[in-house]
């Protein structure tokens, strides 16, 4: 009897299609590309704003094209997915224990959502909405 262990190979490009949980993971990873692109758009907007009224009007017009609206919707969807998936795993990364009692995960997650709402409201208030 001889030993001849067999090694199965895994495709380095399509492994993530094997299971829904890997697809969800890839979606979370890809979300940062859209968030990055959106940040780029904001930076360009700021640049245009600094260049005067005409440049800013051109930027606003570009933002109203169908392609731009679709991009923003996509970016929003991925940003929400990114944020909620990370919020939901925070109790794993940052568990809290006071004495003998462990703080329930729902409270840690809830605190993140509460912080999100407070900061968003403060920003909207600051922007005069």
């Amino acid at each position: 009897m001889s030993r001849k262990p067999y090694i199965r190979t895994l495709s380095s490009t399509s492994w993530w299609l094997a299971q829904p949980r890997y697809i969800r993971y890839m979606a979370r990873e890809v979300s940062c590309v859209l968030i990055g692109a959106y940040t780029g758009v904001i930076v360009v907007g700021l640049l245009r704003l600094s260049e005067g009224a005409n440049a800013w009007a051109g930027f606003v017009a570009a933002m109203q094209t169908p392609a731009s609206v679709v991009f923003h919707l996509l970016a929003l969807a991925f940003a929400l997915y990114h944020t909620t998936t990370w919020f939901n795993v925070t109790p794993k990364a940052m568990p809290l224990q006071f004495g003998d009692t462990q703080v329930p995960g729902s409270i840690i997650i809830g605190a993140h959502y509460a912080g999100w709402i407070v900061i968003s409201a403060a920003l909207l208030l600051l922007a005069g909405v």
Partner: peptide, 8 residues
């Protein structure tokens, strides 16, 4: 929950 342990 090994994933949690690793993040911690």
């Amino acid at each position: 929950d090994p994933a949690g342990a690793i993040q911690q």
